[in-house]
Amino acid sequence: MPGRKGSGSMDKIIVENLSITYSDGVESLFDINLRIPIHQITALIGPSGGGKSTFLRVLNRLNDLADVAKTTGKVLIDGIDILDPTLDVIALRRKVGIVFSRPLPLPLSIYQNVSYGLELMGEKRKMVLDDAVERSLRLAELWDEVKERIHDPANSISGGQQQRLCLARTLSLQPEIIMLDEPTSALDPVSTAKIETSLIELKKDFTVIIAPHNTQQAGRIADHVAFFLQGKLIEFSSAEDIFTRPKDVKTQDYISGKFG
């Protein structure tokens, strides 16, 4: 059974026997078991259709919006089963933020994009919002580039800036877990590097889970790597182990570029 061994750190997320079937009958995840450590970057790699996005969408229950027929197993975040139907999903989504693969700014100003989540919570004090916007934009390494035009439409900045804006928007809620689903797949190398720098900085305070858009990115930033293939978790261990001495031959084939 794949599992991470020999780490003394605490586990933020514990997944046990997780299986997911979409209503078209596709079993997208099959008996997944893994433990995601706190304050580290965990990368989910694998060929297209392996179930990485599906897995991320479980963790903040965004799959509730999709056509999921059946979810079984357990997902514990800080010891609480988040698959519990009576769970407060709004609180969960504030705690587990997500950045999507395409920059998806809301049709609002730069400022309003970042303050949106807080305003949903009923926060109206301008001071609090101003502070949160600045802090989040600084964390996403975007503040200096947009501080002069914070009230411009969010689609007036470049794609790379938009994606960092999306990161800032996620950070504004002060989540504990940040998930990024191929966040740099639409970006140029410079913007990609900026995002990666932020992530390495961010892991001090957050638990980061990323589906990188290639294995090189996982190699650059990940502490732990999970290899998903056709809905199964093939291997999960430290980045070093995965890249230098993978246990499974399929992992080895994937990493050496034989498929995917």
Binding site: I90, R93, P107
Partner: peptide, 16 residues
């Protein structure tokens, strides 16, 4: 649809 997904992912209710 993507606007709706983003909004919900930021903790919005459907009505919000």
């Amino acid at each position: 649809q993507s606007f709706r997904v983003v909004s919900v992912s930021l903790g919005a209710t459907k009505w919000q």
